Computed example of a mutant assay.
Amino acid sequence: MILKRLKFLCFAAIVLNYKVAYADEMTLKESESIKSEVMLSFKQLSDSVKAVNIDKYLSFFDQKKFTSLNENGTVYHSYTDFEKLIRQQLPMVKTYKHLVFKNVKVTVINPDTAILVNEYDSGVVLKSGEEFSVSGAGTQVWSKSKGGWLLVNVSSSMKPVNK
């Protein structure tokens, strides 16, 4: 009887170890899939900025859950305030000379949440003819919704401007 219990416990341990290892492998596959999905959404977001397509850009933000930490040390707890700022500023842009993202990393928190961190370098030409460059870093919290991945939080910082 004791030998049967011992065999059963050994068999149960082997099965349990297999299931745990298999679950970890599946989690890794799911995580990589989520990273790819978020990176695709990020690319589409950045393409909409380069195209100065305000409506497309704003379509990547969750209007109900959105908050932000701004470069000037203020916050928005309302999508409406953020949208108002974007609709005032983005139309002043004629074109982007360049908009490059580097050191991009996506960290999957769970199947519905991922954090994307990046550094950026941009060159902008305004409709007034003025040109300037800005570099910095950003953090984005993406949340999965029925329509895909949406931003629920963004924060950014700028590198000091060299004079």
Rank of each mutant, 00 (worst) to 15 (best):
V104Y: 03
K50Q: 11
L69D: 03
E30L: 12
K94I: 05
A23Y: 11
E131G: 05
K94E: 14
Y57P: 01
K97G: 10
L99Q: 02
L99E: 00
S133Q: 15
F60P: 01
D47L: 06
A114V: 04
V100R: 12
M26Y: 05
F101C: 02
Q140H: 07
Y120C: 01
S36M: 07
T107D: 14
Y57I: 02
T80S: 15
F8M: 12
G138A: 04
K43Q: 14
G73V: 09
K146W: 08
M158D: 12
F42Y: 04
V38D: 02
F101Y: 11
M39A: 01
V108L: 03
A13D: 05
L28E: 12
M26G: 05
T139Y: 06
L99M: 11
D121K: 07
S135R: 10
N70R: 13
H98Y: 15
F42K: 01
V93Q: 00
K146E: 12
K94Q: 15
E71Y: 10
N70T: 05
E32N: 14
N153F: 13
P160V: 00
E32S: 14
L6T: 12
E130G: 07
S33H: 07
D121P: 00
S128K: 10
A137D: 00
F60W: 01
F11L: 13
G123V: 03
W142T: 00
P91A: 05
F8N: 08
I34E: 01
W149L: 03
G147W: 01
S128D: 10
V117C: 13
K146H: 12
D121F: 04
L150I: 02
M39H: 07
L126P: 04
E130F: 14
V100K: 14
V49N: 02
L28H: 09
D55G: 07
N103C: 01
N153Q: 15
F42M: 09
N72L: 05
I2T: 13
V52K: 09
K163C: 03
L3A: 13
K64W: 01
H77I: 13
V134Q: 11
V117D: 09
T113K: 13
Q89V: 06
L116G: 00
V117R: 06
S128W: 11
W149P: 02
K94H: 12
R5H: 09
K159I: 07
D81I: 03
G148W: 05
K97W: 09
K163V: 08
A23E: 09
A12Y: 14
V125Y: 03
K35A: 08
E131S: 07
I54K: 07
N70A: 10
L16T: 15
F101Q: 06
Y22L: 02
M1L: 07
V100E: 11
K64H: 06
Y76Q: 10
D55A: 09
D121V: 02
G147V: 03
E71S: 14
L85S: 11
S135E: 05
Y18H: 11
K94C: 06
V152E: 00
S46V: 09
A13Y: 06
N53Q: 06
V106P: 00
V125T: 15
N153V: 02
K4F: 12
L85V: 13
Y120Q: 06
M1A: 11
V141G: 02
K29M: 08
S78L: 06
T113L: 15
L58M: 12
N17F: 11
S46C: 11
S33L: 12
L90F: 12
M26S: 11
K97V: 07
F11R: 08
G136L: 04
A12T: 10
S48A: 14
L69E: 01
S128L: 10
